[in-house]
């Protein structure tokens, strides 16, 4: 049994822990190569630096469309890449049983359904018998008054 336990009364570790690399205890198929955790960590830090300074430097761009695209990519695009790297290599999702990935995807789909179901009510300000703009009070004055 691939996750058989040692002879310890309460199991300590699956026996396979002592003999094989991290990814293989999870694997349905073993990858041919595995980058070291230190390399992944260094890459994550490089991406972090880009995601911090990219949007800051992008503020100098005058063209609004280019600015928005640059900020979206450097902040959120790289965020997705970083999250993917952590999930794949640190959480070992790339070698985990496939149904775990599917389970997580199902949860994401539910979340997107929630978003899609509610978004029109929030994003469309005017509708039958409702006007969101007239009800929303921007509190900046309140904050300024409070400070003084």
């Amino acid at each position: 049994m691939w996750f058989g336990y040692s002879s310890s009364p309460y199991f300590t570790l699956p026996q396979v822990f002592n003999t094989t690399p991290v990814h293989s205890m999870n694997s349905e198929k073993k990858p041919s190569s595995h980058p070291t955790y230190r390399n992944i960590y260094i890459w994550l830090l490089i991406l972090l630096a880009i995601s911090i300074w990219g949007p800051v430097l992008a503020l100098e761009i005058e063209n609004r469309t280019v600015l928005v695209c640059t900020v979206l990519f450097t902040a959120f695009g790289i965020g997705f890449i970083k999250a993917g790297m952590v999930a794949s290599w640190f959480m070992h999702l790339n070698t985990e049983k496939k149904f775990i990935t599917r389970l997580l995807i199902v949860c994401l789909v539910f979340m997107i359904l929630l978003f899609a179901g509610v978004a029109p009510d929030v994003l469309i300000p005017k509708g039958q018998n409702r006007d969101l703009d007239s009800n929303y009070q921007y509190p900046s004055k309140k904050i300024i008054n409070k400070k003084h």
Partner: peptide
């Protein structure tokens, strides 16, 4: 790691996206 992943998304939302 999951807690880390959540922060990876919270960080750009609250701290970086002010330029948009």
């Amino acid at each position: 790691h999951f807690v880390d992943v959540v922060w990876i998304f919270l960080f750009p939302l609250f701290y970086i996206a002010s330029g948009l």
